[in-house]
């Protein structure tokens, strides 16, 4: 096995990096892939919460780097999916506890026994981002269809290019077709026109994502939500399958209802 290191990044905070990392990891593990997630957000860890593994943390990333434990000891196995592991971040330290070369070494050690190493990058373009970028084979940039997050995504794509880790690929998260239709939100085409990179996933806005995250049970576990389906499609594309992008607009689910409601309120 020779794992592919995928770094999930965005520049801007709150666009869904951690949710995307968790869901792609779950979706890949459900495709019988061996996956380890690394939480790169030292000091502000979240990935453990979203994956519902918070109560099982004994050792963390910084413990591994500083030699207090072996990698194996810091890897938390997800009981729901035996092929899914998490290396949590330390909560009591900051980004400077780890260096880019530490991350490269860590990933090299994991590569032999894994198919995928998914690194959840922190927001920003400083040390934490540099750490997450250093070992990457592929960078997935998460953005929302709104101007400021697209602007930051553009910056990240440029930095990834400058580090010769490019071209990055794009995940457009929280797409709300009703808003796009009214011209109040950027369309997928608008975003792609500006960023000019390959699109690998379009995730619709879906309140079940929030519910699932709060429960520590990412939407990808169940296949009954639009967002979960979209994450599974993205994971399949990462595995090289040709999966058509789902038509987010053609749906009679809650999104349309929500849209109608909003329209009503808007008038």
């Amino acid at each position: 096995m020779n794992a592919k290191v995928v770094t999930i990044s965005s520049g801007k905070g709150g666009v869904g990096k951690t949710t995307t990392s968790a869901n792609l990891a779950v979706a890949l593990a459900q495709e019988n892939q061996k996956v380890v997630c690394i939480d790169g957000d030292i000091g502000l860890r979240n990935l453990d919460v979203i994956l519902g593994l918070e109560n099982r943390i004994v050792y963390d990333l910084v413990d591994v780097v500083e030699g207090r434990c072996r990698i194996r000891q810091a890897m938390i196995r997800d009981k729901r999916l035996p092929e899914l592991f998490l290396i949590p971040a330390a909560q009591t330290r900051d980004k400077s506890a780890v260096s880019p070369s530490d991350m490269i070494r860590l990933c090299e050690e994991l590569k032999d026994e894994m198919d995928w190493i998914i690194i959840d990058s922190p927001a920003g373009i400083e040390r934490g981002f540099r750490n997450a970028l250093a070992p990457a084979d592929l960078v997935l940039v998460v953005t929302n269809p709104e101007v400021s997050s697209v602007r930051d995504a553009d910056r990240i794509i440029g930095l990834v290019e400058a580090e010769e880790k490019g071209p990055a690929q794009l995940i457009l998260n929280r797409v709300n077709p009703a808003l796009t239709k009214r011209g109040d939100m950027l369309s997928t085409d608008d975003v792609l026109e500006l960023l000019a990179i390959k699109l690998i996933g379009v995730i619709p806005e879906d309140e079940s994502v929030i519910v699932a995250s709060n429960r520590g049970q990412p939407v990808s576990f169940a296949n009954n939500s639009k967002a979960g389906q979209a994450f599974h499609n993205t994971a399949k594309r990462m595995l090289g399958e040709e999966v058509p992008f789902m038509d987010i607009e053609a749906n009679n689910g809650f999104i349309n209802k929500l849209a109608k409601m909003m329209k009503f309120r808007g008038d």
């Binding site: 602007r151 930051d152 553009d154 910056r155 794509i157 440029g158 930095l159 290019e161 400058a162 000019a196």
Partner: peptide, 8 residues
Amino acid sequence: RKTIRSGF
């Protein structure tokens, strides 16, 4: 011959 992105 390239795209000049934000911040460059």
